[in-house]
Amino acid sequence: MNLAPQTSREESTYWTLLQEGSQAGLEFFYQKYVDDLFSFGMGIVRSEDQVKDAIQEVFLDLWKYRGRLSDSVQVRSYLYKCLAHKIFRLHRKDQKTQQMNWEYTGEREAVVESSESKLIQFQVEDHLRESLSQAIAKLPERQRAVINCLFFEEFSYEETSQIMNINLRSTYTLAWKAIASLKKHLFKAMNILFLLAFLG
């Protein structure tokens, strides 16, 4: 399902610039990937400050070690890997603030304009989506990261295992555990809905 992202010619030009010490090379990758990195990071820890700090460190490292960068690199997954690594490390330092940040999840607005029956249908869909996204938020952070990689960033198992810096089997195990607990949440939510429908 996942085409290996091809390193474009443009990217390899800027990669070379970066290796040669041009800040324009660094800025190119920053501008190109910062949005993706930010939302990926926020998928792992919901703290803007932590994610921004981690991104900053990733790019500073990239600059610092530019002389040692290898020539052929899938830049996108390489950056994801660095970011995941930074976040897990920074995160261990302040678990406490983290707990607090997870408290306020999901202020989502569902604007639905439709006929009444559709409205109900949409509300069901919304409810399921909502409860799944809450369930994702409650997953242990490494499981959440794997789910992000596989389902939202559409990396392959191989790429995900590289990003997470674990082997393929562990990647699969983490994903399996995550899906199992999501499934439980989903069914709970569905049962409640059926019950409501039945009562209504």
Partner: peptide
């Protein structure tokens, strides 16, 4: 499960993006 799997995409604002880059570049 698959079709209801969704994620709120957190977005970084343009301003924050610029500030973050300025931090990085001034740090450099």
């Amino acid at each position: 499960l698959l079709v209801h799997l969704s994620q709120e995409k957190a977005q970084i604002s343009k301003l924050e993006k610029r500030q973050l880059w300025e931090n990085i570049s001034s740090e450099i």
